[in-house]
Computed example of a mutant assay.
Amino acid sequence: MTKASFRRHRRLRRTAGIRSSVRETHLHTSDFIYPVFVKEGSGIKNAVPSMPGVYQWSLDRLNEEVDEVVDLGIETMIVFGVPAEKDEVGSSAYDPNGIVQKGIRQIKERYPDMTVIADTCLCQFTDHGHCGVVENGEIVNDDSLTLLARAAVSQAEAGADIIAPSNMMDGFVAAIREGLDEAGYENIPIMSYAVKYASAFYGPFRDAAHSSPKSGDRKTYQMDPANRMEALREADSDVEEGADFLIVKPALSYLDIIREVRDRHPYPVVAYNVSGEYSMVKAAAENGWVDEKAIVLEKLTSMKRAGADLILTYHAKDAVRWLNG
């Protein structure tokens, strides 16, 4: 074999400087969306046992978290709520004085330039833990849409910059778009949880948001993890109905879906690096089994490389610290 008969790809890996100059995918602080859990009550900074480093915050302590996020240069947050009371229709989800609405107002009053996203769902607010109205054991699609639209409008009224519906009811983007437009919020974009799988990776989030179903599961409305073409149909429907962003959730086990959605639609794609993906890394790092910084940055880079424009991740604060050295 002569020297000319094969290519020397290693030439571009020889030094750190060369590797840096030819790196194709870069993470930036502006890529990250940081989640915050706001809880009714006072004096609350509750650690989530299954999510080290993640807390539930009462409003009187919320500024501690928000100030840190702003100081790090993170520009976007998503608000999840933990209400004091729940009922069968999740009425506090669309209450103008609900916990999500109050959290949004407080963040926007303190930091008007912060982009605040409202998670729009019913599961944290219903006493049965499902993402819609339940009748005779069935999650009723169309009646749920009315309540979801009401929740979205109340969140926009509170100052949310973006509405992020996560319920996976059929037609939810169309219903919310219509509700926002009729209320005069035609300029508020929808960041749709367009492709949301019935995943085993959500367990720690349900601890944080107190949103586990009291009976049954969510497989009749969230997607089968085995399905690929269905994901594309879901994304197509949401685009037709007026979505402005498309979320793929979870991210790590669905990088192929992120890439296909990215190639199919000229809309911003968001990878949701979910709680189980976060907690597995944290547990392994605490046991000394992995290099946390290296594995997190590699994982987040894989999502960006797959086609994500934005990454919703509980690692955001640590990632920014590492990127900034």
Rank of each mutant, 00 (worst) to 15 (best):
L232T: 00
T220F: 01
H265L: 05
A158T: 00
L246A: 04
A198W: 02
K317H: 01
D236Q: 14
A164G: 07
G203L: 13
T146A: 06
L72Q: 14
C123W: 00
S144T: 11
G17V: 10
N273T: 03
L232M: 10
E40H: 10
D224V: 00
G276D: 09
A294F: 06
E135T: 15
K317T: 02
N287K: 15
Y202D: 14
R8T: 05
Q124N: 12
K219Y: 02
G129E: 10
N273G: 04
L255A: 07
M51H: 00
K39V: 00
T146I: 03
K299L: 14
I78D: 05
R233F: 02
L300C: 10
V261M: 13
T301C: 12
N187V: 08
A174I: 02
G132H: 07
T76I: 08
S20K: 15
V140K: 11
G203E: 15
I74H: 06
G17F: 03
L255D: 04
M1N: 03
A226G: 05
V239Y: 09
S154D: 03
D291W: 05
V22P: 15
D244K: 06
G242N: 02
F32T: 02
K39F: 02
P266D: 15
G307W: 13
A271Y: 10
D256I: 03
F172I: 05
F201W: 06
I163D: 07
N97F: 10
G129C: 08
I44M: 04
D161N: 04
C131V: 03
W322F: 07
A285T: 05
K108F: 15
K293P: 01
E24D: 13
R7P: 04
I311Q: 04
F205H: 06
H28S: 13
V70N: 05
H26R: 15
M191D: 11
K249T: 00
A283M: 14
G159Q: 03
N167Y: 02
S237D: 09
A151S: 15
I162A: 12
K219S: 14
F32L: 05
C131Q: 08
E24V: 08
Y197I: 00
T115L: 10
G132V: 09
T146Q: 04
G203R: 14
V320Y: 06
